[in-house]
Simulated scan of single mutants.
Amino acid sequence: MPAEEKASYCSVDQNSKCRVYTRTNNYSNEDTHYWRDTSTHYCHPLEDYLPFWPAKPARYREVVSAYTVETKKLITKISDVIISEGLGFEKEYLGGELSKVQKLSDGKWIGVEPLPNAFLVFIGCQLQIISNGKLKSVIHRAVTNSKQARICVCTFVIPSSDCHIESASHLVNESTKIPLYKGYQYKEFLHTYILNHGDFEAVLQFYKL
Rank of each mutant, 00 (worst) to 15 (best):
A3C: 01
K6P: 02
C10F: 09
N15H: 11
S16R: 08
C18S: 13
R19A: 05
S28T: 12
T32G: 00
T40A: 10
L46S: 02
D48T: 15
L50W: 03
L50P: 02
V64R: 05
S65W: 00
I75V: 14
I78Y: 03
V81F: 03
I82D: 11
I83N: 05
S84M: 07
S84C: 07
G86V: 05
L87I: 05
G88H: 05
E90I: 00
K91V: 12
K100Y: 13
L104Q: 09
L104A: 08
K108T: 07
V112W: 02
E113A: 15
E113Q: 10
I130W: 04
N132E: 06
G133V: 04
L135T: 00
K136G: 06
S137D: 00
I139G: 05
I139C: 06
A142W: 03
T144C: 15
S146D: 13
Q148W: 04
Q148H: 14
V153M: 11
C154K: 12
V157N: 14
S160Y: 01
S161A: 13
A168D: 04
A168S: 15
L171M: 06
K177H: 09
P179D: 04
Y181W: 04
G183R: 02
E188L: 02
Y193A: 03
I194K: 12
L195S: 15
N196D: 10
F200M: 08
Q205D: 11
